[in-house]
């Protein structure tokens, strides 16, 4: 989808931070399927039975398994245009707060956790940190994933 809006400038960033940091903009649920949990750990080369054997008494999802559990929207619908296109995936931070078991149903909520910029030889890059927080069906906070999206002004 084309976005014909004018792109934000560096001068706009303080107001964008003020408006959007902390805003929750999407929620989705995710069922933890044992087959996918095993395949993920196996593909990563792990041999620990906690992650590849569904009959193990401590069988659980891989520590970064929630990284792929994303909501439909990457950013809020009205979020300003910053730089061209999708940008670059700058990395992921995963906080592993509790075991995620097969059959658990996680509720993931997406917020804008931070917006900051860095200027280097190639110009100014804007880092948009999308935070997903995951709670299981008992309301326990089991995982947080921060995703840094990098866009060039």
């Amino acid at each position: 989808m084309n976005d014909d809006r004018p792109a934000a400038t560096q001068a706009d960033l303080p107001a964008i931070r003020e408006r959007w940091v902390g805003v929750e903009f999407d929620v989705a649920t995710f069922e933890m399927e044992p087959g996918r949990m095993v395949a993920w750990a196996t593909a990563c080369g792990d041999t620990d039975p906690r992650f590849i054997d569904p009959t193990h008494p401590d069988f659980q999802a891989y520590p970064n398994f929630t990284s792929h559990c994303t909501t439909h929207r990457v950013l809020p619908d009205e979020f300003p245009k910053i730089g061209p296109g999708f940008g670059i995936d700058g990395g992921k931070t995963v906080d592993c707060l509790g075991p995620i078991r097969a059959g658990d149903v996680l509720t993931g909520a997406a917020t804008i956790a931070d917006i900051y910029d860095k200027t280097g030889r190639s110009g100014t890059m804007v880092f948009i940190v999308q935070r997903m927080t995951y709670h299981n069906q008992r309301g326990e906070h089991v995982s947080t994933v921060d995703w840094k999206m990098i866009r060039q002004l």
Binding site: G45, D46, P63, D89
Partner: peptide
Amino acid sequence: GIMNQGFLLALLHRWAP
């Protein structure tokens, strides 16, 4: 990228099970 992160986790699990 997330798979690369998974390789690092597998190393950690083998190193300190």
